[in-house]
Amino acid sequence: MSTRWLYLLPLATLGIVAGFFAWSLTSDRNPASIGSALVGRPAPTLNAAPLREGETAVTDASLRGRPVVVNFFASWCAPCQLEHPILMRLAEREGATVVGIAYKNKPADALAFLKRLGDPYKHAGLDPDGKIAIDWGLSGVPETYVIDARGIVRLHFRGPISERDVKDSILPALKAGS
C-alpha cells in the first residue's frame, strides 16, 4: 500500500527543524533581541522636565518639524559612554537634532557626564523614575530612536549605536524623513 511515505514523515520533520536551526546559526539573528513595537508608529508622547537649568520642558513640540534622534542615556551606564562620541559627531558634524533623556539619573551626575564627554543634545530632559522609558518601550539604556518630521518612529536601536548604524541607517533615515 501507499503508506510508505508515512515512514518519511519523521525524516522530513527533522529536515525542516534542522533547516531552521541552520538558518538561525548562519544568519546574524540575535536570539536575545526583542524587536521594537514602535517602528512605523507615532512616537509616544514626551513630557520631560529639563535637565539643564533654565530650559523649558522637553515635549512633543521639541520633536516636530524635522527628523530628530532621541537618545536615552545615563551617566552610570558604561555602554552609553561607548556610544557618546558617535552622538557627538552626529550632532556636530552631521548637524542632526539630538534629544537626550537622562534615564534614572541624578541631574548633577548627568550634567557632569555631559561636561566630561561633551553635550550633543539640543534638548535634554529627565526621566527620574523610568516612567517615560516605559512609555517609549525601553528595555534599558542606551536606546536610540529616529523620528521623522511627522512624528513617526523610523528606527529604534536597543543598545549602543555604532558608526555603521549611523552611516547605514540613521543618516539615510534623517535625510528621508525631512
Binding site: N30, A32, C77, A78, P79, G140, P142, G159
Partner: peptide, 15 residues
Amino acid sequence: MRRRALLAAAAALAA
C-alpha cells in the same frame, strides 16, 4: 549581546 551582559552586571551591582 555585549550590552546586555554589561547591563546585567550593572543591575547586579546596583540593585
